[in-house]
Design a protein around this nucleic acid. Structure first.
Length: 414
RNA sequence: GGAGAGAUGCCCGAGCGGUCAAAGGGAGCAGACUGUAAAUCUGCCGGCUAAGGCCUACGGAGGUUCAAACCCUCCUCUCUCCA
């Protein structure tokens, strides 16, 4: 351990920790140099990552970079969590979707609060600075900005893969979208960032930050790229819109179940990017899976426990596992299912199955309910329902099961 | 500014006056099989209805027609080429 006043660990120790799970560090030499200098001066590095203000629903994919930020933080460096509120207030037209709604100042601030409540599950709230990029962009002279824009060419912008692909496909790209990377790059100038953290899809933007810092005579930041976490579908990167995500605020049971549904080949990636398991622990798992000695399910269960524990608690992880096993392996009814109160027809005490399903929220329309019954997916108290016109006597509480996932207890209202 | 092409369901994409709730694929949901997953097979995949049927939908607004996703007019948006 070094004896400097802030107590940074030695550079090689820091590097070893930071390298774990990283996809690319541009460049390692720069990072090492910066760490060495920081150690010498006892001055923490400034680590920045930008976030879109409109989607404050964080998932394990976001957590990959945020967890890396947390490592930097644990090493004593300064974390700046930058909210791109300026972007949000302008209205980003990215992608083929309609122009995103502009956010008002109030919405941005409300979203920021939501961010905080989530991100501080990972980062230390006392040591994290939250900044907004409107702080400098809103007041910035347009001439300065045009000057910046003038230093870049369209061809350089088209180096970026997704732009090029969209361009070649004949899809629209707005001028604004060309300007965003420049604004993001300027954020690094304004913050004098030493390191910018991002997913691999951010490579272009982070590299642009290096360039622009150079234009402003600053020491160029290190572009720290983490791999993109593949979603539970095993195909696309984890994202909310593809609904293949595990939210860091998901309930323990959901979190556990979602992780169990990932394809086996992602187990090691998830251990590496989403848990605190050290490198040697991970290589053991890798060997187990390769040799086929151990059912991958067991490692996946451990993975699911680790993740749940990270965002909830060890107890929650245990109970989530218990519920999962009862429900999916033993095909029986777990003990923590939701209870829903339903009112049957007064005198007869009967209720149509379809109404039951609709009122319990198991389906969103009677048509859907009918299809479920026709598909053979509905049980009431272990009794298979085959006729969608069937009525159920609701005198005491019953168990309604629609598919594997939707199980609830129906309580008759007196 | 000029010339052309296009906008279809969650996405891609066929349809080009009635047989269209709209082919096909993907995604999704359910069933079988499993380890929970993957792979595979099967079914479903706008709403209401017991059923016949009704309603809502093919960028927007009008129009022609017994009848329009399909024809006409205007508008909005996108792409390509020329300047």
């Amino acid at each position: 351990m070094s004896a400097n006043k802030i107590g940074f660990p030695p550079v090689n120790e820091q590097m070893d920790l930071l390298r774990h799970g990283a996809l690319e560090i541009i460049s390692e030499e720069d990072l090492e140099r910066k760490l060495t200098l920081s150690l010498k001066l006892g001055k923490p590095l400034i680590i920045k990552q930008g976030f879109d203000p409109s989607a404050p629903d964080l998932h394990l994919g976001h957590a990959v970079t945020i967890r890396k930020l947390a490592q930097f933080q644990s090493l004593g460096h300064r974390i700046i969590f930058l909210i791109g509120d300026f972007t949000g207030m302008v209205g980003d037209p990215s992608g083929r979707s309609k122009t995103r709604p502009r956010l008002t100042r109030e919405e941005v601030l409300a979203n920021a609060e939501t961010y905080k409540s989530q991100v501080f599950k990972i980062l230390n709230s006392k040591k994290t600075e939250i900044r907004f990029n409107s702080e400098w962009h809103a007041s910035r002279d347009i001439y300065q900005f045009l000057d910046l824009a003038g230093r870049f060419t369209v061809a350089r912008m088209l180096e970026r893969d997704d732009f090029l692909i969209r361009y070649q496909k004949g899809e629209p790209i707005s001028i604004l979208e060309f300007l965003y990377p420049l604004m993001q790059a300027y954020d690094s100038v304004a913050l004098q960032a030493d390191v910018e953290m991002g997913g691999s899809d951010q490579k272009f933007n982070l590299l642009l930050g290096r360039k622009i810092q150079g234009e402003y005579s600053q020491d160029a930041q290190v572009a720290f790229l983490m791999p993109l976490l593949i979603g539970t579908d095993g195909k696309e990167k984890m994202s909310k819109s593809l609904n293949n995500y595990v939210g860091i605020c998901d309930f323990p049971d959901d979190m556990y179940g979602k992780i169990m549904s990932i394809p086996d080949r992602l187990i090691v990636d998830y251990f590496t990017l989403a848990t605190d398991l050290p490198v040697d622990g991970i290589s053991v798992i890798l060997n187990d899976i390769k040799s086929g000695q151990i059912n991958p399910m067991q490692h996946k269960q451990r993975l699911a426990r680790e993740v749940v524990q990270l965002y909830h608690s060890a107890e929650a992880a245990q109970s989530a596992e218990h519920h999962f096993v009862t429900r999916f392996r033993d095909h029986s009814v777990p003990d923590n299912i939701p209870e829903i109160t339903v009112t049957p027809t007064p005198i007869t005490g009967l209720i149509a199955v379809l109404d039951l399903m609709l009122q319990s929220g198991a389906v969103t329309s009677r048509g859907e309910g009918r299809r479920m019954i026709e598909a053979g997916a509905v049980w009431v108290d272990e009794r298979h329902i085959s006729d969608f016109r069937q009525e159920i006597l609701l005198s005491s509480s019953i168990i309604l099961k629609v598919g594997k996932r939707k199980i609830c207890r129906i309580i008759p209202e007196a």
